[in-house]
């Protein structure tokens, strides 16, 4: 418990719209140790993005307790990197300037790191391209490089590889694991892909909807790199699928 970086106690979140109110999260309890790779999985609308935004400090309007390194979070910042569901690049900046954003690209130190990251996300040759000239997957890789440049303590990823093809997706998964091993960044990774969740996470948080709450947390005690075809991998995969079926049965009962 002493080195838990994220600690969430009885966290609930209700959205108030004009007449309606929607409870997006109810009584979430989650402790994340420093350097963990958490994958979060659940059906659409179960509150995954909502949870991520609270951890990022983008949403401060919740009930219950959420501490980052033992302290209350008062707002977003570069210590909590965020990769959104869409790339969200600045359309008037080219690739390298989007990655640098507020940092000076002419500073040799920044330049070197930006080039390194462009190489890592395989965008060499597109440094000067504008976002409109990129495919969805390429744009998302720029967004990933932008977050990585800031060396965050926690990296929050909201279905970051959803728009990528299978090959690029596999490559980006490797890249992410490399960064995780090298920088010991704590990762909280939202996905709707069970294979991806098992491949990356050392714990899988399964959320169920209406209202969003934790169905189960599945530990993945497999050595890295993992083989998706191995028996032990398939075993854990099945465990997650079973939980999903329980959620479905619950939902259709209504």
């Amino acid at each position: 418990m002493s080195n838990s970086i994220v600690s969430i106690n009885q966290l609930s979140k209700t959205f108030h719209t004009n007449k309606d109110q929607v409870q997006a999260l109810r009584n979430i309890n989650l402790d994340i140790q420093e350097g963990e790779f958490i994958t979060v999985i659940g059906p659409s609308g179960c509150g995954k993005s909502t949870l991520l935004k609270i951890i990022a400090g983008l949403d401060l309007d919740y009930q219950g307790e959420f501490l980052l390194e033992g302290k209350n979070v008062k707002g977003p910042g570069i210590d909590k990197g965020y990769i959104f569901q869409e790339p969200r690049l600045f359309p008037w900046l080219n690739v390298e300037r989007n990655i640098a954003a507020d940092l000076n690209i002419r500073d040799p130190k920044v330049r070197e790191k930006v080039d390194e990251l462009i190489n890592l996300v395989k965008l060499t040759g597109f440094e000067k391209s504008y976002p409109r000239e990129l495919s969805g997957g390429m744009a998302q890789r720029v967004a990933i490089a932008r977050a990585l440049l800031r060396n965050p303590k926690v990296l929050l990823l909201d279905e970051p590889f959803g728009a990528l093809d299978a090959f690029t997706r596999a490559h980006m998964q490797e890249v992410l694991l490399d960064i995780w091993k090298k920088n010991k960044t704590t990762m909280i990774f939202v996905t709707h892909d069970i294979d991806e969740a098992v491949f990356l996470g050392n714990r899988i948080v399964i959320l169920k909807p209406r209202p969003g709450s934790i169905q189960d947390i599945v530990p993945v005690v497999l050595p890295i790199p993992r083989k998706k075809t191995s028996e032990s991998f398939q075993e854990i995969r099945l465990q997650v699928v079973n939980e999903f079926e329980k959620i479905e049965a619950l939902q259709s009962a209504f």
Binding site: L58, I78, R88, D102
Partner: peptide, 21 residues
């Protein structure tokens, strides 16, 4: 507003927000 959120996660201060966004 989506880019505004990005700017906040990138830690832009008020001046940078005006100048860069």
């Amino acid at each position: 507003n989506k880019l505004f959120e990005v700017a906040r996660t990138l830690g832009f201060n008020r001046w940078k927000l005006v100048r860069l966004l």
